[in-house]
């Protein structure tokens, strides 16, 4: 067997594995999409059918015209954007300081930030409700975004720290030689180098807020209710509107897909940042 044949077979195996992985990851979403085009009865048939026998947009019409859905979509966007912005604004300087100054307290801080991720979300539910109420920001997008930031911030700091680690200190020194202050070096020199990392961190922070359920359940009522809560409302104790639920879930996936496509070159750049270090 020559090398060309071996490479050909390896390629086939790799493509087969890739296809299998794609099917594994993609099938639930494709099934959700297909279900959203089924009639109400077919959407809940036993045993389930993969393809609709009769394609319909009925689920989309009923889901999008349901009271509270448009407002919830707007609230989800506003909350996720605020939370992402807050995460970045806080995580970038924190991670930069930790990686550049390398103090013992910085190391304690970054480990402590990770420990907060280990606390079950429900455990902080009651205190958070109390704090938000005292601050007068329950049922507001800002209050919910603050809560979401407590989830995304530790991960954002860790991610940004790993990206900053990949940037040599000499770059900062060169900027300072050219007359930059520490903050100017960060803003004008280092951040442009880690744009990909910032994009990756932004996506993680955005997704953490976009899909979050428990804090949204505990901290919102009418004004700031987000879409995950509205989607869950399609299942009540008295029935399951599976078609409507899948239709709204499909619509809710669109911004995330668009965001990922829009930022994909930064994501790839971010993921490979530091891969050739040294």
């Amino acid at each position: 067997m020559n090398g060309l044949e071996t490479r050909g077979k390896t390629r086939i195996v790799l493509w087969a594995l890739l296809a299998a992985a794609l099917i594994l990851y993609g099938f639930p979403f494709i099934y959700l999409l297909l279900t959203s085009f089924k009639t109400p009865l077919e959407a809940i048939s036993v045993p389930p059918e993969v393809l609709p026998t009769q394609w319909t947009l009925e689920n989309y019409v009923s889901a999008l015209s349901r009271e509270g859905v448009p407002a919830a979509l707007v609230n989800s966007v506003v909350t996720a954007v605020i939370s992402t912005a807050l995460s970045l604004v806080l995580a970038v300087p924190a991670a930069y300081a930790i990686t550049r100054f390398r103090t013992p307290s910085g190391r304690v801080f970054i480990v402590a930030a990770l420990v907060t991720r280990m606390v079950p979300t429900i455990a902080v539910g009651a205190p958070l409700v109390e704090i938000m109420r005292n601050l007068g920001i329950t049922d507001t997008s800002f209050g919910l975004a603050l809560a979401h930031t407590t989830i995304s911030l530790p991960l954002s700091i860790w991610l940004m720290a790993s990206f900053f680690e990949a940037v040599p200190d000499e770059l900062d020194e060169a900027a300072k030689v050219d007359g930059c202050s520490r903050l100017q070096a960060l803003w004008r020199v280092v951040i442009p180098v880690v744009t990909g990392g910032v994009a990756v961190t932004a996506i993680f922070a955005f997704l953490a807020s976009w899909n979050e359920f428990l804090f949204a359940l505990l901290l919102t009522s009418v004004r700031a209710q987000t879409t995950p809560i509205v989607i869950a409302n399609f299942q009540s104790q008295f029935g399951l509107d599976w078609g409507g639920m899948t239709a709204l879930a499909a619509v809710y996936s669109i911004p995330v897909i668009l965001l990922t496509l829009f930022l994909q070159r930064h994501i790839v750049a971010g993921l490979t940042l530091g891969a050739v270090k040294g």
């Binding site: 506003v78 605020i82 912005a85 997008s141 975004a145 009418v222």
Partner: peptide, 21 residues
């Protein structure tokens, strides 16, 4: 954009209707 978002945030808004509290 960050400034705008912060401004929106500080208004504490949500668009789902009146204040439930």
């Amino acid at each position: 954009a960050t400034t705008l978002i912060t401004a929106i945030a500080l208004t504490g808004c949500g668009v789902g209707g009146g204040d439930a509290t």
